[in-house]
Amino acid sequence: MSSRIEILNDGGYRSDGRRQYELRTLTIDLSPQGSGADGSASLTHGLTQVSVCVFGPREAKMRSQTFHDRANVNIEVSIAAFSASERRRRGKGDKRILELSHTLKSTFEPVIQTSLYPRSQIDIYIQVLQQDGGLLQACINATTLALANAGIPLYDFVCAVTGGVHSTSLLLDLTLLEENDLPNVTVAVMPRSGKVTLVNMETRLHVDRFEEIFRLAGEAGKVIHGEMKKAVRDRTEQLVGAMQSIGRPLAGADAVDNEY
């Protein structure tokens, strides 16, 4: 073993004390972040932290970018200079960032019901605050939550998890350390239909291991879906509760009016 740190020790624990299939702590905050966004979410997977603001659907800034039959989805990612262990500025034109935002765009375009908003634009701004592996998965999960929070119609949630292979054992939700050492793959699933909207692999992975890790990541995506659904439900319950507390109730309001 050339690596100084054991990825998986004899007791079956990883470097941060997790088991093989154990996911990192997931925290979700759906409260508005004071930027006047239509929807926002901040999410952490362990030490990876991402905050997303969604604006729209709104009038397109550039007429050349509009489509007459659907909305244009515009995604901008920015990575804070202090987000990694070594300070590094990445400009807007950075190849990594462009690739990331393009991947996200092709993940979400088929999930958002864009045909309901012709000639409009949906802007998604992603700010990466801390990086500790699983950047793509955190961006996807946070964007799903922000879109749901903004009331933009989605076919389903998109839930992503990274999986890696250490010799023959499979690991889930990799940290930066594991991500650098292991062949890994990010899988995004739509849990209701079980459809896979994204598979991203930047390293070489043995073809025999691929199917195993692919299935496992799909299962893990459903676990993440449970957490994301709970966060959206709590937020919706909170808002509906506040609205119902005063005056005439919201649901069936029109029906009541008709009686008089």
Partner: peptide, 30 residues
């Protein structure tokens, strides 16, 4: 929206029914 003979919600909010019409009123939207 409809998929596989099922009516499925696409936004988060309150479900409303008028006779046979099912709608979901989004709790936050434009």
């Amino acid at each position: 929206y409809v998929d596989n003979e099922e009516v499925i919600a696409s936004v988060s909010g309150l479900v409303e029914r008028v006779n046979k019409l099912i709608t979901v009123r989004a709790v936050r939207t434009r």
